[in-house]
Design a protein around this nucleic acid. Structure first.
Lengths: 140, 140
DNA sequence: CACATACTTTAGAATAATTATAAAGTAGTT
DNA sequence: AACTACTTTATAATTATTCTAAAGTATGTG
């Protein structure tokens, strides 16, 4: 049943290395997420809607959540939060920062921000990562 | 009914300037939040539980949400998000940053982080604020 | 300082995002 | 081809939050 054509190899590999069998639904989701030039910021609900609109046979909510979670745990997606109780995901997993512009998220390349001074981690801990959010407002 | 004793004046003033009448429930909530030495990080649910545990007559959930929202809109509380779809609030409204240490939040004074380089805001926008989150992990 | 009125409180219903469940289907191995 | 463990799905459950409408209260006015 599973069409293992080479075209999808990289998506299948992503799934396998996330501990998931490459089912058709999962391959399509993964392809939708990563088969693009620009990085994507999305919520699971947005992902579900944009994929299911084009499909006669809908993929279930649980499958979207499962797949996104596994890809995130494997490090293929980055999770972040705004102030609206919804999880956002970013296909750009390289260390980078964000502008938040009225609910819209814009990536900031890592090298656009550098620090002059950073605090030490508390004892027994070390720094895992540093994320900067720059909130924007209208320029009136 | 309302005991307008001086002891509570600063809390009553906070409420009034947030556009809220200083009812007993609101004064108690405001006092609980701001009548302390160290700043407090909390979710509405946590706030409700810690206050209601000690009370015979419980304050309703809606009143906690209303009061916290108004205090936040007036600028007396700062909202932030972790990756668990819950709103957190901080009684420290001065510009500052955070360590996130396995769900625990620790303030970082503003002057502990300085930038060497920051990006420009996109045209038509200006920077409202810059927030840094330093995620910690165990030091093994 | 009693009254009227607009603002509040409250319990409970409604909503939204997410997670859990369990029956029917499928991938991968033998 | 058959077996078994993993998946998908629809649906129910859960969690955080917001809404609603009835009963209660703060506050300005007289």
């Amino acid at each position: 049943m599973q069409k293992n054509n080479n075209k999808n190899k990289i998506f299948i590999d992503k799934l396998r290395s996330s501990g998931l069998r490459p089912t058709n639904q999962r391959v399509e989701i993964t392809k939708f997420l990563f088969n693009r030039k620009k990085t994507l910021h999305f919520t699971v609900e947005e992902l579900k809607n944009s994929m299911n609109l084009k499909r006669s046979k809908k993929i279930s909510t649980a499958t979207f959540y499962n797949t996104v979670h596994a890809l995130k745990s494997a490090g293929y997606l980055k999770e972040f939060s705004l102030e609206n109780n919804t999880s956002y995901y970013d296909t750009n997993i390289s260390s980078h920062h964000h502008f938040f512009d009225n609910g819209k998220v814009i990536d900031i390349k890592s090298d656009k921000i550098t620090f002059q001074k950073l605090p030490e981690a508390p004892k027994g801990r070390k720094i895992k990562n540093v994320e900067v959010v720059i909130r924007l407002e209208n320029n009136n």
